[in-house]
């Protein structure tokens, strides 16, 4: 019982262990703790631990049914367990493949339809033609250039719009004055579909990079603003009070309590903004551009190269998925304290 040592040999809170003091003038020496104290929590935890480890062993034994069977007759249980191990592995492999079943089947059907002449090349190129177009553009270096240009546009838009949205969200969540000054205006601007501003944006910036950057920034600003603001507003007031009691203020309160508390909501905003980012980019690259994936698709349309058009769609899908995967990985890493993100 380590617990008893802790208290009689000088409390660990008081390392140099001055002798037990008499408290309140009653002259209480510190005798050994009543057995209840030392053992109560320990015993309760011990019980939990053994129960947990038991259930862990149970869980290892595949499906619940085979386990209960194994518990009743241990001799046959071995056989059942190894058999169900194998079937479980098959099930797991199947489970991993399941999400791809539908798209792979569709591609196979599509290829078959094209090969047998059921689908015209002018309406839809065959998957093989799309792959061929991919190889061709990959080796000519056009693909890398276009993807690079589009990626840079998307990222800089996200960075600019996201930063503004984030800062406004934090400021309005923290400061009443800032909220009164800007929140109503932002809520009004938010209801305007940002793509409706295209005519005006073209008049302002022409058709250069600025127009694309402006539109993308505007698009990602609002979801990040709203979710950051909401996240900060919803940080547990009790935790903020606790932080103040323990002497936190200003930057340290923000860093230790407000920002981590708002982070789950900020990530929701980020993932939502990523979707809008690609959407805006595609639209603005289709209006006018001389590089980028949208440009690639539009030029291909003029020459009736459906394979390249479809390739552009596939690239958008891959880039969109990639961005989401990155955001989710960041989310899981940053929110590992949250039971909802623990695996």
């Amino acid at each position: 019982m380590t617990t008893v040592d802790t208290f009689t040999d000088g409390h660990p809170l008081r390392r140099s262990g001055s002798q037990s003091r008499s408290v309140g003038g009653k002259g209480l020496a510190a005798p050994a703790i009543s057995p209840l104290v030392g053992e109560m929590p320990g015993r309760a935890e011990g019980g939990n631990v053994s129960r947990n480890s038991a259930s862990a062993e149970v869980a290892e034994g595949a499906s619940p049914r085979s386990v209960s069977f194994a518990d009743i007759s241990p001799t046959r249980g071995e056989i059942t367990r190894s058999a169900s191990d194998r079937s479980r592995a098959v099930l797991a492999a199947f489970g991993r493949f399941l999400p791809f079943l539908l798209p792979v089947t569709l591609v196979i059907l599509w290829q078959a339809g094209s090969s047998f002449g059921l689908i015209s090349d002018r309406i839809m190129p065959s998957p093989a033609a799309v792959v061929a177009a991919f190889w061709e553009r990959l080796f000519s270096g056009e693909l890398a250039r276009d993807v690079g240009v589009s990626g840079a546009r998307a990222l800089s838009g996200l960075l600019i719009g996201g930063s503004i949205g984030f800062l406004l969200g934090i400021a309005n969540g923290v400061s009443k004055l800032s909220e009164q000054l800007t929140d109503t205006t932002l809520q009004m601007l938010r209801t305007i579909p940002h793509l409706a501003m295209i005519p005006l944006v073209i008049l302002w910036f022409g058709i250069g990079e600025e127009a694309k950057l402006f539109l993308t920034s505007l698009g990602v600003l609002f979801p990040i603003y709203l979710n950051t603001y909401h996240g900060v507003k919803n940080v547990d007031r009790d935790l903020i009070e606790m932080g103040r009691i323990y002497g936190m203020s200003g930057w340290s309160l923000f860093r230790k309590v407000i920002f981590p508390g708002a982070l789950p909501s900020i990530f929701v905003g980020l993932r939502y903004a990523l979707g809008i980012m690609w959407l805006t980019l595609i639209v603005s690259e289709s209006i006018a551009a001389n590089s980028g994936i949208g440009y690639m698709a539009n030029t291909a349309r003029e020459f009736m190269m459906t394979d390249v058009v479809v390739l552009a769609l596939v690239i958008y899908a891959v880039l969109g998925k990639l961005a989401d995967v990155i955001a989710r990985t960041l989310e899981r890493a940053a929110l590992s304290w949250n039971p909802a993100y623990q695996r």
Binding site: F7, H11, L13, R14, S20, R21, V23, L28, A30, I33, S34, L36, V37, M40, P41, A44
Partner: peptide
């Protein structure tokens, strides 16, 4: 109830130890 008794004893102990 049981956790509570354990905690009560803990509070008593730290109070007596630290004063």
């Amino acid at each position: 109830a049981l956790t509570r008794i354990g905690m009560q004893n803990l509070v008593t102990d730290v109070w007596r130890e630290l004063g």
